[in-house]
Design a protein around this nucleic acid. Structure first.
Lengths: 174, 174
DNA sequence: CCCCTATACTCAACAAGTTGAATAGGTAGG
DNA sequence: CCTACCTATTCAACTTGTTGAGTATAGGGG
């Protein structure tokens, strides 16, 4: 689908500059669609060229000037159309799973370290989603997507604990 | 990490042709790393050029000739090195979540259809993973990755049911 | 005054992934 | 025999995503 639709979706909740979007993508949306700032700026330019968003220059007194983007009517239409089209299946790219599959006898130690890091990360994410849910879980869109994040991380934590247990058994046996 | 490491991982469990890999990626590994046949053939060529895999031409009586790939020593070394490096965080790209976020009042109907399709797909995948687990869950690598798939789909089913419930409430209220 | 950090953005090069089409041998069914 | 499908692969063009560097404004601390 490309990032462009995700950007339109983000802008549908209110105007934002490229920099602000980069932060939002880093914190709120990152877990089901991530992007670097460069990619965002590039796609915003394309969206502007295609007339789906409009830019407005905002001079700030204590900060550099920024360009704030808003959806145009065409942008809103394109977004609505996108929502009604069937979604393509979710794609997951999880390097850790590839490593687990490829692991040999001597790799348990390294994988335990990696698992512990993964566990810590998942717990952090879970805590953040729970905080965000408490803050604005009354809106239906954010509620469901935050629940997706929460349930995903809970499952991920349980799975990683299972992996750790197995790896420790394996290491103990060796 | 690129597909190349996933290919090395797949070949570490035994030789395979590009076509066979394409099928494996479609059925077994697809859920944490997917690829089209074209990409596989291209990366196999690169791996061969870099000396990480070797090709052997196999003539078949009732089928077209194929090229079967095996890991070289250098390939095995590269794979071992890769396993011990820290994994980068998993990336998820889920169009459906973007659509949910961007949905407006009139979109419930389309999203219900999409949710039902997602549910059916998840149930199918879950059944397949459970079958595969019964078949070869005794090996530690496949066991853990299959469990990842199973737990992921179970959670996904629960979440999608939650979404459906909400969407139906919304539609009923309107 | 210099350095560090944060905001705000841009350019260029490259790697990875997707899409569409084409070739070519073999098998099975009507 | 013609069609359709499966195996097995290749080529080309394109879109997406990543990496690294660089520019500029402004604030605060030493």
């Amino acid at each position: 689908m490309s990032l462009r639709h995700a950007v339109l979706a983000a802008l549908s909740r209110g105007e934002a500059s490229g920099y602000e979007l980069a932060k939002r993508f880093d914190v709120a949306v990152a877990d089901f669609w991530s992007a670097t700032p460069q990619q965002l700026y590039r796609d915003l330019e394309r969206l502007e060229r295609d007339g789906l968003v409009e830019a407005r220059v905002v001079e700030q007194s204590r900060r550099p000037t920024k360009r704030v983007f808003t959806l145009t009517e065409a942008g809103r239409r394109a977004l609505r159309e996108f929502v009604r089209e069937p979604a393509r299946p979710a794609a997951i790219r999880d390097e850790f799973l590839v490593k687990l599959r490829a692991a040999g006898p001597g790799d348990a130690g390294a994988l335990i370290v990696a698992s512990e890091a993964r566990l810590a990360q998942s717990r952090q994410k879970l805590a953040r989603y729970e905080r965000l849910l408490a803050e604005n879980g009354d809106e239906p869109g954010p509620y469901l997507t935050l629940m997706a994040g929460i349930m995903y991380e809970q499952q991920n934590i349980r799975w990683t604990e299972l992996v750790l247990q197995r790896l420790r058994d394996e290491e103990g046996a060796a």
